[in-house]
Write a protein that binds this DNA or RNA. Structure first.
Lengths: 296, 296
DNA sequence: CGGTTCAATAAGTAATTCCTATCGATCTTT
DNA sequence: AAAGATCGATAGGAATTACTTATTGAACCG
């Protein structure tokens, strides 16, 4: 008997419908049927009657099922409580600093932090906004932060990461730009633009970008009018019309007025993808950090 | 979090020693370490301190571990109780007839039945001793019994089985026989014996036996002086010195005085093996029967 | 300083679980 | 009454997960 089976059973008992229960549990219906059958055969007892002799096809709890449901719910409840308790005790006086930069819309970040606090109410969370994806990784190595929301690739051997989402490239434009109205922007249309770029820590994807540009018939080498050191500065320069910039499509630019991001359209199959991740020091396998990583 | 992890954790907490705990749980030590680590990282809490700074290397529960142990034990206890309860309710007024023949030493049979009764106290168990392995399977098809302890192969398409042990061949001899003193018996030494055999339902293994005998330079065809219909009769005839007989090594002949079974030694790799099994009607997937099958 | 004990790690294998596709049966609709 | 729709069971293959053996690394002991 495993908790998974109890969760499945309780959900089916609540819905009295395999299809709906499976959807709620985010598994397929056959997986559900199978686990219920496994549970029944371990218990040696039928938990459901699949009444088809009456007019209406129905899934009904047997008497034994009703009795077992109460126990199953108690077990599930207790298990949740046990986790909560052990976390309350074990995570006391611990503190975790989470570093990030604006690669998440604020609501996603907030929801992550809320889940952190909910699961580990005793842990002190600190948030550190950092200017670039590279700064996040450097802060991890310097142990200024314990956990970082950043992008692949990892730039230090001591780091480990778990990816949690990816996206393509977008073009950050002044709202007044003549391309800002279109749903997306073709690379070729950008041949004669001026560019702003994050300088100090160049992401390797910029090599790929240059390569794509050359395939599209132009180069950005001479057209980068300004290099900046943070995403915030970058957005401001774009909004002022100093130049435009490539940014990951999941970047949050909404807090800067006058800037819009439009997906980049590239001819051919060469689609640049950028991967978001939670990163941490590999040699620090503290269970607390692992649990937090899993939460993201 | 799964019950397996709770069981592992509770055992390690009791032993405070991974190696011993693993042995008790019948898993390898790395599997145990791994599951404990998984549990810790799901909880986000360290459950054990692996104290090595003191003189003695020790595995010690952390404070959080101590707290969690209590909950884990409560959960395990409750789960056992829930199973017991649901069986008590669900298996009421059911009855199961178990057919067998003397292929098990009585103590093994008793221990199986005891486990049945312990797990399903409300179920009426009936025991039916049948003369041959074939009779057990026929009784299953005729639905005289619900579950049968017998041997492979299955002789009816409607039957399903789960094997639970196997053995080789032995020779049943009168206690006074000159070979009865040896630890085992070579096939060649039996060339001039008289034989007794179970007749009506010939097990296919007897073909193999005949083949082996011919390889050893003799045949039993003319030497079978008596065919009988049950194992009991067979034993009696052997004890009276009418002839000797081949029997599976796991047969129980101890209740018949004056008969001993000695393992057969066959030259070459052709070792006859016989497989014991629990058999039941395949089209009857009643959870109760499945649970009983799993108990064997 | 070698030998021993014990848990952690690594890598490959075995076992589960899960998913897609399909079936069989019932109920509804035309 | 026949065709479609609904719903759970089944089958077969893919992916994940747990387990095993072999090895490493750290601490203790002679």
């Amino acid at each position: 008997m495993e908790f998974r089976q109890l969760r499945y059973f309780a959900e089916v008992a609540a819905e009295l419908h395999y299809g709906r229960a499976a959807a709620k549990l985010c598994v397929s219906q056959p997986a559900l049927s199978q686990q219920i059958q496994l549970l029944e055969s371990e218990l040696g007892v039928e938990l459901f009657d699949h009444v088809q002799r009456t007019r209406q096809r129905k899934v009904v709890l047997t008497e034994a099922g009703t009795v077992f449901l109460a126990d199953a719910q108690r077990l599930l409840h207790l298990s949740r409580q046990a986790i909560e308790t052990v976390r309350r005790v074990g995570a006391q006086q611990k503190s975790v600093a989470l570093g990030y930069y604006q690669l998440l819309r604020p609501d996603r970040l907030v929801s992550i932090v809320q889940r952190f606090r909910q699961s580990f109410p005793e842990v002190q969370f600190q948030l550190r906004e950092l200017p670039t994806f590279r700064a996040v990784q450097e802060a991890l190595v310097a142990e200024t932060i314990d956990l970082g929301l950043t992008m692949l690739p990892l730039l230090h051997a001591e780091l480990a990461a778990r990816p949690f989402g990816q996206g393509g490239l977008a073009v950050a434009l002044p709202a007044a730009h003549f391309l800002a109205g279109a749903p997306d922007v073709a690379l070729e249309a950008l041949a004669h633009e001026k560019w702003v770029e994050i300088s100090r820590p160049l992401h390797p994807v910029y090599d790929e970008i240059e390569h794509l540009c050359q395939q599209a018939g132009f180069s950005r080498r001479g057209a980068i009018v300004q290099e900046v050191s943070s995403l915030e500065l970058l957005s401001n320069l774009v909004s002022l019309g100093i130049g435009i910039a490539f940014v990951p499509s999941f970047f949050d630019l909404s807090q800067v007025p006058g800037v819009v991001a439009r997906p980049l359209r590239v001819a051919g199959p060469e689609n640049v993808t950028l991967t978001q991740c939670v990163a941490y020091l590999a040699e620090r396998p503290a269970p607390l950090l692992q649990a937090l990583v899993a939460l993201v």
